[in-house]
Design a protein around this nucleic acid. Structure first.
Length: 518
RNA sequence: GGUCCGUUCGUCUAGGGGUUAGGACACCAGAUUUUCAUUCUGGUAACACGGGUUCGAUUCCCGUACGGACUACCA
């Protein structure tokens, strides 16, 4: 009956970041998994901002999170930015709610006031450490030696509070109890309550800690599944205890603790530092730290396509069990399942992300890419027809990883080369080449129509007439036209560049490289 | 240190009591491309270790090792 009720419960998931800076790429994956489950089950995706630590608040972070999620295609149904029946969705605006439930815990004997100063806490830890105690915790044993409402009389406690003495409210964790939870990814996890300390629920500034706020909000917002990073697993039993003490055991959400995203070296959580060192972004969008004014690159601005990034991220810790690798968001929604999420941490391999990007880029139409190219060209002050831009994209897109490469690797299409690759020139620039190219220049300048096919047939007839193999001089021709020894189809390049420019470039190359054939 | 979690090619992973342990990225080689890239074909490469259970374990159990997370009035 009970489980039937739970099974039927509408799927409501939340992504609950803290606005302490830009959204980490690991956070994006967590949000994605939540979103996939919500969409698949016809559920609701909620965005809640966990800003209970006023000291760590970073201006602009919340806005960044909203923008970043929108960019990757994670649509928020309810929460910050869109509102909903459980507003407000910013924890700092829900202080009264938490106060009410802390009071309830105190009244039911599951929480207590603690007046210990930082120094006193420090002394306690020192004392325990010196005594060789394994855990220097505020717990069922040590709390009896501290200044709290358990060791003080009711009058003393009241007097202290009335006097305005700073205090926190701590959870009274039972001394001996087996706390268990059935994680959707890891199965049963059991922890003895003696291992859990009397966590602070309400800080001395009147704000709740994560533990309390998270449980209260998940309950009130009717969250069905808590999908979050593995770093929360150790405190999950504490949350289970809270549900129990608050009388919400029946409505407790299911938990799924995701494997961590590891640094490429594999030792530890992926951090901004590692990403910087390895030269890849850690944030979805560019982020300027308001304190240092430092700019951290984003995936978007670095040229990653959002659907490629989503595909890549989805596969870090999850797989469909088939050999299909390319998944659109729609396909991911259909195929996703929590059961197929792995247990072990996944190293972050930027090469794979680049491969996905390349795949998605190739799948883009020339027209779409051309639009993008045209905006770059406009900024660069380069004139180009959209027809030409489409042609350029068609020859460039097979050979690049990022859209910006079309421009960066295709500059020779817009500018006459000013210098030539010496290695190629040394090898391929010889008398034969000069003979052919000189003749070819003459033939082309006499042409009235010009395109890739004509360029090719013209070249073939010139080499045939001279009795020289086309292949022998092609590199020299490429060098003349592009300045380099490698690139896209040469005939198409010449078509794009146009007859006049081809002649001009041949003249310049013949002139400049003359010395090579002394 | 303590608690918890984890461990299949270099990486992401499939698989699961009897398999030639499969795929993808990366890498290497060949083919195509008169270049490079793409594409195609092929190749190198893995069940951490030790005990059980079993006719048989990479798969189940227990240890060990190694790795990670957590251990704040941070989330």
């Amino acid at each position: 009956m009970q489980s039937y009720f739970l099974a039927m419960k509408a799927v409501r998931v939340r992504f609950a970041p803290s606005p302490t800076g830009a959204l980490h790429i690991g956070g994006v994956r967590t949000a994605l998994y939540n979103f996939l489950l919500a969409r698949q089950q016809g559920g609701t995706m909620i965005l809640r901002i966990e800003d209970t630590d006023q000291t760590r608040y970073v201006p602009g972070a919340e806005e960044y999170i909203v923008k970043a999620l929108a960019w990757v295609g994670i649509k928020i149904d309810e929460g910050v930015g869109v509102g909903g029946p459980h507003a407000p969705y910013r924890q700092s605006e829900r202080k009264d709610i938490y106060a009410k439930y802390t009071q309830q815990l105190i009244d039911s004997g599951h929480a207590y006031y603690a007046f210990d100063t930082e120094e006193e806490l420090e002394q306690m830890r020192e004392r325990l450490k010196a005594a060789g105690v394994d855990q220097q915790q505020y717990n069922s044993i040590t709390r009896m030696q501290m200044r709290n409402s358990l060791t003080l009389s009711e009058e003393e406690t009241k007097a202290l509070i009335d006097k305005g003495t700073p205090y926190v409210i701590r959870l009274k964790v039972p001394r001996k109890e087996e706390v268990r939870l059935n994680d959707l990814i890891r199965g049963w996890v059991m922890v003895h309550s003696s291992q859990i300390d009397d966590k602070v629920l309400m800080k001395s500034d009147g704000m709740p800690t994560y533990h309390l706020a998270n449980v209260v909000d998940d309950y009130l917002m009717e969250i069905s599944h808590v999908i979050r990073g593995e770093e929360w697993l150790p405190s999950a039993p504490l949350h289970v205890l809270l549900y129990k003490f608050l009388g919400w055991e029946e409505a407790m959400p299911k938990f799924a603790h995701l494997p961590l995203l590891l640094k490429p070296s594999g030792d530890g959580k992926l951090s901004k530092r590692d990403a910087d060192q390895m030269g890849f972004p850690i944030f979805p969008l560019d982020w300027v730290d308001p304190n240092t004014n430092e700019r951290a690159p984003g995936y978007k601005e670095s040229g990653y396509l959002s659907d490629a990034l989503v595909n890549f991220l989805a596969f870090l810790g999850w797989n469909p069990g088939t050999t299909q690798e390319i998944f659109s968001m729609e396909e991911l929604i259909k195929a996703f399942s929590i059961e197929r999420i792995g247990k072990a941490g996944a190293r972050f391999d930027i090469q794979k992300a680049q491969w996905f990007n390349q795949q998605y880029l190739k799948a883009r139409s020339n027209e779409t890419l051309a639009e993008y190219l045209l905006t770059i060209l406009k900024n660069e002050g380069v004139n180009c027809s959209s027809e030409t831009a489409i042609k350029i994209c068609s020859i460039m897109k097979e050979r690049i990883t990022f859209p910006k490469d079309i421009w960066e690797q295709g500059k020779f299409l817009f500018f006459t080369p000013t210098q030539f690759d010496n290695a190629v020139a040394d090898k391929k620039w010889n008398n034969e080449a000069v003979t052919v190219l000189t003749a070819y220049r003459e033939s082309i300048s006499a042409l009235t129509a010009f395109d890739a096919t004509i360029a090719k047939t013209t070249l073939e007839s010139v080499t045939a007439a001279l009795g020289i193999g086309t292949g022998k001089i092609l590199q020299a021709l490429r060098l003349s036209i592009t300045g380099a020894g490698a690139g896209p189809d040469l005939m198409m390049v010449m078509e794009i560049v146009g007859k006049e420019e081809v002649v001009k470039r041949l003249d310049f190359a013949l002139q400049t490289l003359k010395v090579k054939v002394a």
